[in-house]
């Protein structure tokens, strides 16, 4: 085993990525940490201002303005969207694993929405969810659910229901709906995992007289927990990073009434419209730390409920 040769070759083969790591990650990472303590507008040189950007962030979180508002919106989007995507992903995968004919066609149809470009999907949904002309409200009205405002209403489903007892999804719910439409990626992963569950387990359970529901809860679900965990982490990251659809449906402004001003958009606008790179860098770093903490917490709790078989 010629280890020196291997060593040099190792670095040589990894060198494009290593270069990328330094240029596209380490340098930006360090630079944005430094800028988060500066005032910087991209044109004039950065100016050290200490922790001012961070105290402003704390203030905004306390008052629910700026970053605070964006954080609340993003939290809503993730807290509603991720659990629903898990639920929907598993449901669809289970349906696709039923032993009936034509599953290949159904699988294709279920997955198709997740390859649709986000820009096109946004255009489509803006039209489908139009409060007056859209087909969604046409359907809802015909089953007596009224004509909610969707992307044109700043309220959200839960607080409106809490206050008035009516079903009136708003802009954030519309974005959740759009994200659920593209649940196909997770669905395919669940489907693969379902295929990996040993048949013998089911057969044994059936011999013991376990019904379909019991089999699902005691065999299938535990086998899926690693994927649910993966879905949870990736879903959280995707919710926080979602940008294109939000930019397009909110006209790049978080409208109506800032209800779709999510962290990604707020950060982008702070940087390139309010020309406040320092503040935007602080937002990015805080976001990174929050995500890291959330992911670590998930990893910690995962030991209790994620089942790694085999």
């Amino acid at each position: 085993m010629s280890s020196t040769r291997n060593r040099i070759a190792g670095y040589a083969f990894a060198s494009p990525w290593l270069g990328g790591l330094v240029l596209l990650y380490l340098f930006p990472f360090a630079a944005s940490l430094y800028w988060s303590f500066c005032r910087y507008d991209l044109i004039n040189p950065p100016q050290w201002i200490g922790g001012e950007n961070y105290t402003r962030l704390a203030d905004e979180i306390a008052t629910g303005t700026g970053f605070g508002q964006a954080l609340a919106n993003t939290a809503y989007y993730a807290a509603v969207g991720v659990p629903l995507s898990i639920l929907l992903g598993i449901t669809l995968a289970v349906l696709l694993s039923l032993p009936v004919r034509g599953q290949a066609i159904f699988r294709t149809l279920f997955f198709l929405p997740s390859v649709i470009p986000v820009v096109a999907a946004s255009i489509l949904w803006m039209w489908l969810l139009d409060p007056k002309e859209g087909i969604v409200n046409y359907g809802l009205a015909s089953i007596g659910l009224g004509t909610p405002g969707w992307l044109q209403s700043s309220g959200d489903m839960f607080s409106t229901f809490w206050r008035t007892g009516t079903f009136a999804p708003g802009s954030k719910d519309a974005l959740v709906l759009m994200s659920l439409w593209g649940v196909g990626n997770f669905m395919v992963i669940y489907l693969a995992a379902l295929g990996d569950v040993p048949k013998s387990l089911y057969e044994a359970a059936q011999l013991d007289g376990a019904g379909a529901m019991r089999r699902f809860l005691h065999i299938t679900l535990p086998m899926l927990t690693p994927i649910i965990f993966f879905n949870l982490v990736m879903g959280l990251i995707q919710s926080v990073q979602a940008f294109t659809q939000i930019y397009i449906v909110s006209e790049g402004r978080g409208s109506p009434a800032g209800s779709t001003m999510m962290i990604s958009l707020q950060l982008f606008l702070s940087a390139f419209q309010h020309l406040d790179m320092g503040y935007a860098s602080a937002v990015a770093w805080l976001l990174f730390v929050l995500l890291l903490v959330a992911t670590l917490l998930l990893f910690r709790t995962s030991r209790r409920w994620v089942y790694y078989g085999g």
């Binding site: 044109i43 930019y247 006209e251 402004r253 390139f272």
Partner: peptide, 13 residues
């Protein structure tokens, strides 16, 4: 398109 100001500033920067 939206945010012409943003695009312009990016071009200057």
């Amino acid at each position: 398109g939206n945010n012409l100001d943003l695009k312009f500033f990016l071009a200057v920067a």
